[in-house]
Amino acid sequence: MTKNIAVVAANGKAGRAIVKEAVDRGFDVTAIVRGENGTVAPHALIKDLFDLTSADLAGFDAVVDAFGAWTPESLPQHSTSLRHLSDVLSGTDTRLIVVGGAGSLYLDSAHTVQLSQSEGFPEAFKPLAAAMGKSLAELRERSDVKWTYVSPAADFRADGPRTGEYVLAGEEFTTNADGESAISYADYAVAIVDELSAAPDDAHVMKRISVRW
């Protein structure tokens, strides 16, 4: 059965990559955008994320949240937007797949130290990491939403190639044999669509997963 999904903030770089991967793999995709649909999705809902209602998202098998905010004044929207989508989807069978951040990945098995707290983590990215980490912590409190939070590698490459391959990990920060943590948007999109394609017993519901090359 063809899966019917919506991608919120589909015009962004991550959103466009996810839409393309899903369309190429036979999903019925609706792009939710504030302006003209700039994706290959065959359907579009022109509406602000914060104005979405339960009726807007009814009937989708999954909603992918690709929203991002980067300026100091907009960073709190990582929490408010995710809270709004969670409230809209509360109590439904619709999955919520969240495009997350790497800064909240843990460096130890006790889960006491996050990547964003490590020496050498760029100061410029700490406010963003804190905002996204806060939104994840709040999402963990939700038992009424079938959420999955997907953290990319530390080096998230917008223009990297699509290899179709990646390593699936969990809450802890991992690297390859050369100590590198990287993935392209295209292969991150592959991982997102693989998660959307997973059988119920294999899906990572109410869990955070991470992907890298």
Rank of each mutant, 00 (worst) to 15 (best):
L82N: 12
H78S: 08
G59H: 05
W70T: 13
D194M: 00
L57P: 07
G12M: 09
D65H: 15
P161Q: 05
E73G: 11
P42Y: 08
P161A: 05
S143K: 15
G179E: 04
D87T: 13
A203K: 13
F67Q: 07
V8C: 04
A31D: 14
T94D: 02
V167N: 07
L139G: 01
S104C: 04
A131Y: 10
T53S: 13
H43N: 15
P161Y: 08
A131W: 10
E119T: 14
R162S: 10
S116D: 06
E141G: 14
D194N: 05
E195L: 04
A130E: 15
D187E: 09
A9T: 10
V63L: 05
G26H: 12
L82G: 03
T148F: 05
A158Q: 14
D144F: 09
G12F: 08
F173P: 01
Q114L: 10
G101Y: 11
S118P: 04
H84G: 07
L57G: 00
I46F: 03
R142G: 04
A203I: 01
A182Q: 09
A154T: 03
P42T: 06
M206H: 14
F50A: 13
G100F: 00
L45R: 07
T2Y: 01
G12D: 08
V211S: 01
G38D: 12
R83M: 09
L89R: 07
L75T: 08
M132T: 11
D202L: 12
A10P: 06
D93C: 02
